[in-house]
Structures are given as C-alpha cells and as structure tokens.
Simulated scan of single mutants.
Amino acid sequence: MSKTVFITGTSTGFGKLATITLSKAGHTVIAAMRGVTGKNAAVAKELSALPNVDVVEMEVTSDSSVQEAVQQSLRKHGKIDVLVNNAAMAGYGPLEAYSLDQVRSMLDVNLFGVLRTYQAVLPSMRANGNGLIINITTGASGFTLPFMVPYLISKFGVETITEGGHGELQRFGIETVSIQPGVYPTEMNTGVKTGIHADRQDIFAAYGEETAQAMQSVGATFGQRMAEFKPDPQMIADGILALVNMAKGTRPLRYPLDIIAEGTDKDFIDARAALKEKWLAKYFKLA
C-alpha cells in the first residue's frame, strides 16, 4: 500500500537516495530541504521531476519553517504516514575546543531539529491513530569516541527520543525506529558537506600536534574501512524502504545497517536490550 513519507535533508546523501528509492517503489514522498530556490535549486528540480515527489522548503533549525512545511504538506496530501528524520551535520575536534555556541549549533540541527519535526507531525499521526517515525542515528549511538563528542551527544539524544517515544506512542498506533548506519561515503563523510567543527582555535592549538595526528588517524581509519568494505549508501535508502513496507507491529526498535561492524553492532544492540530488561525487572516487577 502506498504511503505518504516526509523526509528531511533530501538535498544530498541518504535523504536524496531515499526520496528516489521510495518514489520508484510507488510511495508519495515529501522531500524537505532548505534553499529550494537557491543553492539547492538544481537538486530540488531534479527530485520534483520524479513521480509522486513534492519538494518543500524547510529549515530544521527554525520552528516556524518546520511547522509551515508540515502544515503545507498536510493541507496538500491530507496525511503523513511516515516521518524520516535524516537531516544532520557531522563535526570533529576536541570537546574543549568547541565553543558552547558551536555545540548549540550541532544540537540545533541534529537533536532539536528532530524534536521540531516530532512536535509538528505527531498531532496528525495521533489523530489518525497511525504513523511511523524513522530516525537516522549512527552505529556509535550507544557509546562515544574521542573528537566526535558533540556529534555523538546529538545522536545519543535522538536514540533517547526514539526509545522513549516507542513506549509513549504505541497506544496511538505510532511506531518509532532508529536506523543505525556506520560510515558511508556520503557528502557528510567525504568533506563535501560543511561540518560543525571545533571552533576555538587557541584551545585546539594548545592540545598540540599529537592530538592533531590522533584526529587524522581516526579519519584515516574511517577512510580505510570504507575503501575495504565499500559500503553503498543505497543500503540505507533500501533500509528505509524496507521499514516503510514492513507490517505494523513487526518493526524493530533499532535497525543496524553497518557492514563494516561485521555484526558487532547487532551484538551491542542485543546486549543492551537484554540488560535493560534485567534493569526493568528490578524496578517494575509485579508484587
């Protein structure tokens, strides 16, 4: 059955691929991006030419922009069956070398952007007694790594939204899932897309050459792994399609799609779920 799917961050990467993939599969796609008449005019025109694709202007850091894009879509299409929160920015650097304003910028896109779309879309989903929210997080969303702390703070937060929302929204017929991708050669990881990086250059300099080399080593390792495993970003678009097409009630809470992890991502998810069950049993066991 065809669904109406609202996707954020569709000008590049996973979002663009998902728009194309879902359109080919017969779904109606609302492709949200910023700059549809400016810097992203070409891709907006490209996606608008696809069957059943409606490109809308939306800036995820603006409350009014998100609300207007969602309300415009509801007026035109009558409903939103699926929300895919894909828009995000990456960033690197020692935590101390991030100004608080720079951390806020990261959270405003990656975390508060998700909260804005939730608050805009959920009233209509609750009224319809049906909905699916897919959040794109990261394979490292259950642990942290050096030089990526603000980015991972934001992704930990989205995992919290997904898991907590799963319990809060079930009774309204709404499901939440996080897709946990590993490292893929998208614009976010190839340097084409500007990131939100550490901006306190004096602090960065004080950490010395050893830290700079360690950062380069992390980046080089990601590059080597991508060269070795050749992960295809289409896997994420196909994963989104698979979740959209799954029967209600059969979707997992977390959906790892990371060939580089070689199954350790699923092991981690399973172990965490098992530990949570033990914890819940201690706090909420029946008398």
Score class of each variant (00 low, 15 high):
180 Q>H: 10
25 A>C: 03
176 T>V: 13
118 Y>I: 02
261 A>K: 11
168 E>F: 06
13 G>T: 11
281 A>R: 13
96 E>H: 12
55 V>W: 01
58 M>G: 01
203 I>M: 13
143 F>Q: 09
53 V>L: 01
75 R>A: 15
260 I>T: 03
273 A>F: 13
220 A>C: 05
81 D>M: 07
270 D>W: 08
72 Q>R: 12
196 I>M: 04
283 Y>K: 09
219 G>P: 03
38 G>C: 03
247 A>W: 05
254 R>K: 14
179 I>D: 00
49 A>C: 04
226 M>C: 06
106 M>Y: 09
28 T>S: 06
7 I>L: 02
70 V>I: 14
199 D>H: 12
43 V>P: 00
68 E>P: 00
260 I>N: 00
158 V>S: 05
57 E>T: 02
172 F>M: 11
282 K>F: 11
136 I>Y: 05
62 S>Q: 08
218 V>G: 01
258 D>E: 07
209 E>W: 08
97 A>R: 15
52 N>R: 15
276 K>C: 02
157 G>C: 09
259 I>R: 07
278 K>H: 06
250 T>H: 07
178 S>H: 08
270 D>I: 08
77 H>P: 01
187 E>P: 02
106 M>H: 06
141 S>T: 12
270 D>T: 13
238 D>P: 03
209 E>Y: 03
226 M>P: 03
94 P>I: 14
151 Y>Q: 08
245 N>F: 06
132 L>C: 07
217 S>E: 15
214 A>M: 15
177 V>M: 03
226 M>Q: 12
173 G>F: 10
248 K>N: 13
194 T>G: 04
254 R>E: 00
119 Q>D: 04
248 K>T: 15
248 K>R: 14
101 D>Q: 14
142 G>Q: 13
247 A>E: 15
129 G>E: 11
72 Q>L: 08
187 E>Q: 10
215 M>F: 04
195 G>C: 09
29 V>Y: 01
239 G>Q: 07
272 R>C: 01
213 Q>E: 13
219 G>E: 10
246 M>N: 04
68 E>F: 05
272 R>P: 00
117 T>N: 02
200 R>W: 10
41 A>P: 00
273 A>R: 14
101 D>G: 13
80 I>G: 02
174 I>M: 05
67 Q>Y: 02
32 A>L: 04
250 T>L: 03
96 E>F: 11
40 N>S: 06
101 D>Y: 09
43 V>G: 00
279 W>I: 13
3 K>I: 04
165 G>M: 11
70 V>H: 07
237 A>V: 09
170 Q>W: 13
65 S>T: 07
40 N>M: 07
146 P>R: 13
240 I>G: 00
183 V>H: 11
141 S>W: 08
172 F>W: 14
237 A>Q: 09
105 S>Y: 04
181 P>L: 05
239 G>P: 07
137 T>L: 10
177 V>I: 12
133 I>C: 00
62 S>P: 02
56 V>F: 02
167 G>Y: 15
200 R>C: 03
248 K>P: 04
210 E>Y: 07
9 G>T: 05
130 N>S: 15
271 A>H: 12
131 G>W: 09
14 F>Q: 08
218 V>M: 14
99 S>K: 09
196 I>A: 01
84 V>E: 02
